[in-house]
Design a protein around this nucleic acid. Sequence first.
DNA 1: TTTTGTAGTTTACGCGTGTCAACAAAAAAC
DNA 2: GTTTTTTGTTGACACGCGTAAACTACAAAA
Lengths: 340, 340
Amino acid sequence: MATRAEVAKLAGVSEATVSYVITGNRKISIPVQKRVQKAMDKLGYRPNRMAQALAGGKSRVIALLFPTAARGVAHVDLEYGLGAAQAAQDLGYHLVMWPTLDRSVQEVIATAKSGLLDGVILMEVALHDERVEQLKDVGIAVGLIGRTATEFGDEVFADRDFDTAAHTALNYIAGLGHKEVAFLTEKTRGKPVVVAALTRTKQAMKAAGKLYGVNVKNFESTTDPDDGAKLLAPILDEIPKITAVISLNPGAMVGLLQETNSRGISVPGRLSLLSMATPESFVSATSPRLTTISPPAYEMGDSAARRLIAHLEGTGVENLPPQLWAGELVVRETTGPAQA
Amino acid sequence: MATRAEVAKLAGVSEATVSYVITGNRKISIPVQKRVQKAMDKLGYRPNRMAQALAGGKSRVIALLFPTAARGVAHVDLEYGLGAAQAAQDLGYHLVMWPTLDRSVQEVIATAKSGLLDGVILMEVALHDERVEQLKDVGIAVGLIGRTATEFGDEVFADRDFDTAAHTALNYIAGLGHKEVAFLTEKTRGKPVVVAALTRTKQAMKAAGKLYGVNVKNFESTTDPDDGAKLLAPILDEIPKITAVISLNPGAMVGLLQETNSRGISVPGRLSLLSMATPESFVSATSPRLTTISPPAYEMGDSAARRLIAHLEGTGVENLPPQLWAGELVVRETTGPAQA
DNA sequence: TTTTGTAGTTTACGCGTGTCAACAAAAAAC
DNA sequence: GTTTTTTGTTGACACGCGTAAACTACAAAA
């Protein structure tokens, strides 16, 4: 653990010069730069991050909040996290995992005030998310995976492109001849948190339905597969002409799929199923395998982290990955032409 | 962001006294303690973690390595992470997510030398895992989820209790009258990393098989469900008397299950299926739902983190959660009596 | 009264860095 | 040749805390 002083002595320069070589905040002549670089290499020098953070007032650490209560923690959250963590590392930052049971940000704020955190990434964002205000009020930078009601502006976020996703879904479904479609969404258990994604998708589906001449009827369920299974009968009873189900609720969707199996309802013969939020790893377990339009979670995590860090560093928004992601339609075995 | 100096002035004591009140490393009279406490509360004081780390030589930050290459990152890894992160928070530590593509620890070592990391938790541990030596050689504390070949000693780890798991599995299976069992394990794609869990489970299954009078025949597959599906025919051809499959390979298991569905092989009539490593969230997608003995990943992450931190702080190993976890047998729909 | 002891508190410094203001040397302008 | 400007480098200090060593006050022992 060599220090700056040792590097300076070995290179025959002052400590300040070593610092400026590292940060590039002052012009240093090429020969001196080389001497310093050589000395650093020889000593295996790495600046002490704690000292950097203390002197510079920035820790270059961000936190990713995992809300563990409302609907549990899904595999998709892990992908967000891995994408964000990898991006952070690429940019010289680090990402700490921050599980929260109750969506409270008190501890996060305290930790940020203690200098450990420069910023926070939130998931499962509500349309009116008080966490965002609370954090911004005390001067903590916030990045979102998802988005509040605020229109673009200077918000730092990565989110699904709900409009495009809905259009892709209904264009595909309408193309197969389906006219009556059930749209399966989530009902939060316990504390009601209206996630922004839900509202936005509902709106987008409504609009896209009109555009493609498809009747979209909304159904709700918890994320418990058993609840999804119980929904099959009501859906078919209420509107017998329904020939397709599009779901934003992966848990309920697999339950519903299982129920079709056990009741001998042909998929995709009688009913086509399209999931808008099922992670790749999950699909392999379903049979028949679900047709999906899933958001690229890893890339969204990456984008959110890069945007937050760009915001922290005050660098521009050029060369950043996209803000909105529609996700690709992957046709598998649960969708087909509507019955005549 | 009040500082120690302000607290000291408000309380009418020296800065050192404030420090000692916080750390408890010197005896301070009760009245003074109360004055200081009151001053801290009034100012909303939080010690600056960067300064603490710099002065104290400890960052109280640990990293969790996510190996993203060999078999991808599974949901179980997220649970390890959440358990470890929560434990860390409870103990005043923080856990950074550290994805690694190639199992290299060079960057981790560099970061630890820079003072940001006090220790590291490794997953997917090999019997002879060079990462452990590399880290320990440079004085970085290591905790394991899993375990190397080293017998207990002073190793810091949480691992599955393979013997108990194997006994539970075979006791249950033998009790159903099965005599010939296929044991389905993982074949690493690409770089061959022999994960310790694999070796240990094989041994345990062998021993337990003898004990319960069950013939256990080993089969290998990648974690790709399609590969698992392809294994059904060979298994039934090679040893027609096989009536049960026990799997350590969740991916292959779901593929195999799907293959029984599509080939009309009755589960559990003709073949019973028992998975030893399928996360809860995954099970809900399978139909019929898999009987499992799964390790409690959250608790194992918790245990590993607590043990690593206890090691770092030099506190004893009393009051720590268990080191070995067998996991509970959850009987669902894929196991039943052996055919006569 | 002096000495010894002890509990409680403070002084003083180090941890390793970022960066401002000052400075020397070289180049440019006059 | 002198003054001004530019370029490159450095000394000095601040960041906020932990802690060893010194010190004070006061009680107990001699």
